[in-house]
Amino acid sequence: MSTDANNIVGLYDRNADAWDIARGKSLFEAPWLDRFLSLVPLGGTILDIGCGSGEPIARHFAARGYRVTGVDSSENLIALCRARMPDHDWHVADMRRLSLGRTFGGLIAWDSFFHLVYDDQRAMFPVFGAHAVPGAPLLFTSGPGHGEAMGTFEGEPLYHASLDPEEYRSLLTANGFDVLAFKPEDPACGGHTVWLAQRADRA
């Protein structure tokens, strides 16, 4: 399965337009996104890690006056972001090696870093911490329990993995985040398992 994980970048880049269409523009995530936004100062900065095509999530933030920096490993998806929201900041980058040299008022990794293998997921928590100001919320999705799962997209294998919820809690705590909410397989959010944490308000 780790080979399939390594193919994720190419899969999304080859199928960027198909993914954009399949994703659609409906915001079933809106209650979680708005709870997240309630913790980001109005007009503040948001780092969207695995931003995809920028719609609908980054668009939702931009429409409410937030400044979005989006990161995705797919050049074709980032090209869509730049065409749609040229006034915001878009980077082609591998999240595992992300080092932007600045911090943000909020961070989101929605349906993105769960494509990484276990050790790469563990290594993302210091990355989150390095890019978050004190008090910044972190919103991300995972699986409901430890394990790997395979899906398909456009006929290609699509890898997913998740750590155990208690390990996510430990990683968040170790990297300066307090867990505010955890909802496994939220029926009001398409069955997504959702985490909302907040960077401790201390230096």
Rank of each mutant, 00 (worst) to 15 (best):
R59C: 07
H60L: 06
A62L: 06
A62W: 03
A62D: 00
A63S: 06
A63F: 11
A63R: 05
A63Y: 05
R64S: 01
G65P: 00
G65Y: 02
Y66E: 14
R67V: 06
T69I: 13
T69G: 12
V71F: 14
V71M: 15
E75N: 14
L77M: 10
L77C: 11
A79D: 15
L80Q: 15
L80A: 11
A83V: 13
R84V: 04
M85L: 13
M85A: 15
M85K: 09
H88M: 09
H88P: 00
H88E: 08
D89W: 11
H91P: 04
V92Q: 15
V92H: 15
V92C: 13
A93F: 14
D94A: 11
D94W: 12
L98I: 04
S99W: 09
L100I: 01
G101K: 15
R102C: 14
T103C: 13
T103F: 07
G105L: 09
G106P: 07
G106W: 03
G106E: 04
G106M: 01
L107M: 04
L107W: 04
L107T: 00
I108D: 05
W110K: 01
S112E: 07
S112P: 00
F113N: 11
F114R: 07
H115Y: 01
H115R: 00
H115G: 01
H115P: 05
L116W: 02
D120F: 05
A123D: 07
A123I: 00
F125C: 04
F125Y: 13
F125H: 10
F128L: 08
F128E: 12
A130L: 13
H131D: 02
H131Q: 05
A132R: 10
A132N: 08
V133W: 05
V133C: 09
P134R: 06
G135K: 07
P137W: 06
P137V: 08
L139C: 10
G145P: 06
G147D: 01
E148Q: 05
A149N: 09
A149E: 14
T152F: 05
T152S: 15
E156Q: 10
P157M: 00
H160D: 11
H160S: 09
